[in-house]
Design a protein around this nucleic acid. Structure first.
Length: 591
RNA sequence: GGACCCGUGGUGUAGUGGUUAACAUGCCUGCCUGUCACGCAGGAGAUCGCCGGUUCAAAUCCGGUCGGGUCCGCCA
């Protein structure tokens, strides 16, 4: 037996007991006649002491031990003298007095120190991910991820949901994200796709009468990465029959309430705030607003449309908007140069400029103040709740650009100014999403959520006349400015589903070819159903206080979707290609 | 597809045209019996990501390329 206890779990209750420990050498401190070793395992650290006089054989071994050696020790747990207690260690009041020691395996000096304070570049960490994962904060994050999935499984099990697996090798569908493709050997020239989500299968399970399904499912999307986006990620996928939106949302809320209480000890109140998509876009310029701070977008279009400031005037005349955010009390803090930098920031979202006004006792100050007469200025001040010392920032443009740029600026300023209370978990639901949006590039409407989302019944007759105005029975769960997940009531009637495909520009033939199996299935007694998919990685990221999804995934990909540990993706042999009837059109220039 | 930032001993940084590339930490050796950022003394370790150009001279300037990161587009 290698060990009787775990390092980090030793307490004063063990004092006087003989125990065996095994683990990695965190740190060796050699004082000549006595050697201290901090021994680490998954549970934490404990100090072990080897004395040349009381344990001469062990001392000889301890003398040769180095960082990250795997060792086993036995001895007695003793209480430390009061003056040698280490308050920074959870096991700091005790230590193990070593009697025997053995080296189980030696270790090369690791390329970086195994400790929490990371000062190592991401690429080095990822190349040696197995060492990076030894760092306590990484262990803690993966432990939290485990506790989260365990809680989700327990909760859904208690509510009667069945965990059912769906295929990883499946059918490519053109809607939505780009697919990862897998060539078929048996069917030359044909491909499987990895699932973007188990969407179709979970609906088919509802047709099957499974009634309540869930899966913690890996999903794949061949799109460019972000700090909160990986090409393979994990969804908590949930679907139920005889679905009604309100009770379902309540059940999801209850899961979140219990989960954050268990995992973080944070109490959040239910029901969560609900906000329509239209309101979120108007007030926050985002469909996933961070409502931990104010600084809302204020519409000034009507007030300034007759002003002599041409930029504002023309934006409104052209069908656009003029909106502002009020940066409270920051007029002095932002110099002209600092505001110029903010203008560069909003330009990435397509804004052509960032107008500004500072408020002081004499009224508005700044280069554009001369364009507004007294009564206009008063109305602007009232609309933005402007007071002395405030800084107003304006964007005048098409609605989308105004929302994107001011929405992003609002979040950036809040972060820069420290307006966000990081201890708060701020959940809300966004409802009544548009069903469709017009894709300029494709020259047609595309599904905002996915093509199986049920339109709102009162909008359904507009599907053919004004598709852009149809709202969906869809909802997103938002946490602290991140989209945690989204779901909807699904279409479960063949005729509505066919109408939807038609609206999306599918010919009847193509709809049959791509989704005929679903349309057919709907004709065999399909219950109304709906559900949600939650981004597990993002949930772990937020609850563990990380700002990057990579830190919540044991073996993540880099920004260019490669794995630095295994060097995937990589070239394959000509034989492998031949077997799959594949030819490489543009061979990479070999190194 | 685009923009921006980064690349210098194992690790993290300094050096921004001119001697032997500096510092911290880590590593190695020796000394040290209560350390926990142990201490003290000594030592090894870098063709400055790669290729090309400018120059008498390049870690430094220019172009390209590769790798990492953040964002826009893309993606729910």
């Amino acid at each position: 037996m290698y060990r009787t206890e775990n390092c980090g779990e030793l307490t004063e209750a063990h004092v006087g007991k003989s125990v065996k420990l095994a683990g990695w050498v965190q740190k060796r401190r050699d004082l000549g006649g006595v050697i201290f070793i901090d021994l680490r395992d998954r549970s934490g650290l404990v100090q072990i002491v080897v004395n040349t006089e009381t344990a001469p054989d062990a001392f000889i071994i301890a003398d040769t031990v180095r960082s990250e050696y795997v060792i086993s020790v036995s001895g007695h747990v003793v209480k430390r003298d009061p003056q040698s207690v280490n308050e920074k260690m959870s096991t700091g009041t005790i230590e193990l007095l070593v009697e025997e020691m053995a080296i189980i395996n030696k270790a090369k000096t690791p390329p970086f120190a195994i400790k929490d304070q990371v000062d190592t570049a991401d690429d080095v960490r990822l190349k040696y991910r197995y060492l990076d994962l030894r760092r306590p904060e990484m262990v803690e994050t993966l432990k939290m991820r485990h506790r989260i999935t365990q809680k989700i499984r327990k909760y859904l099990d208690e509510k009667g949901f069945l965990d059912i697996e769906t295929p990883i090798l499946t059918k490519s569908t053109p809607e939505g994200a780009r697919d990862y493709l897998v060539p078929s050997r048996v069917h030359p020239g044909e491909f499987y796709a990895l699932p973007q989500s188990p969407q179709l299968f979970k609906q088919l399970l509802m047709v099957s009468g499974m009634e309540k399904y869930y899966q913690i499912a890996r999903c794949f999307r061949d799109e460019d990465l972000r700090a909160d986006r990986q090409p393979e990620f994990t969804q908590v996928d949930i679907e139920m029959s005889f679905f009604e939106q309100e009770p379902f949302m309540s059940m999801m809320e209850q899961l979140m309430v219990e989960l954050v209480d268990e995992v973080k000890g944070v109490k959040v109140t239910s029901p969560f705030l609900r906000m329509t998509h239209r309101e979120a876009m108007a007030r926050y310029g985002s469909d996933k607003p961070d409502i931990r701070f104010d600084m809302e977008l204020k519409d000034l279009s009507d007030i300034v449309k007759d002003s002599s400031f041409k930029v504002f005037q023309q934006a409104v005349l052209g069908g656009g908007q003029v909106k502002a955010i009020n940066v409270k009390g920051q007029a002095e803090a932002y110099s002209r140069k600092a505001i110029d930098e903010l203008a560069v920031f909003v330009s990435t979202y397509g804004a052509k400029g960032l107008a500004w006004l500072k408020v002081d006792e004499g009224g508005f100050k700044g280069p554009i103040s001369k364009f507004f007469d007294e009564s206009t200025a008063e109305k602007m001040a009232a609309q933005t709740q402007a007071e002395n010392g405030d800084l107003l920032l304006f964007v005048a443009d098409k609605a989308k650009i105004v929302a994107d740029s001011l929405g992003a600026l609002r979040v950036k300023l809040a972060k820069d100014l420290g307006l966000i209370d990081e201890s708060v978990l701020s959940f809300l639901w966004i409802t009544e999403f548009p069903l469709l949006s017009y894709d300029e590039e494709a020259g047609r409407y595309v599904a905002e959520h996915h093509p199986f989302t049920m339109p709102m019944m009162e909008d359904i007759e507009k599907l053919e006349s004004k598709p852009g105005e149809v709202r969906a029975q869809a909802y997103d769960l938002v946490l602290n400015g991140y989209e945690l997940g989204g779901g909807s009531q699904r279409i479960y009637q063949r005729d509505i589903q066919e109408l939807m495909f038609k609206t999306l520009g599918f010919t009847k033939e193509r709809a049959t070819e791509q989704f005929g199996f679903l349309l057919d299935a709907f004709e065999y007694g399909t219950p109304p159903h709906g559900g949600i998919a939650l981004g597990l990685d993002r949930l772990v990221m937020i609850l563990s206080g990380r700002s990057n999804l990579r830190d919540t995934i044991a073996f993540p990909k880099t920004a260019s979707a490669s794995c630095l540990l295994t060097n995937a993706p990589s070239e394959v042999s000509p034989d492998q290609l031949k077997e799959l009837s594949l030819e490489i059109d543009k061979p990479k220039i070999t190194k």
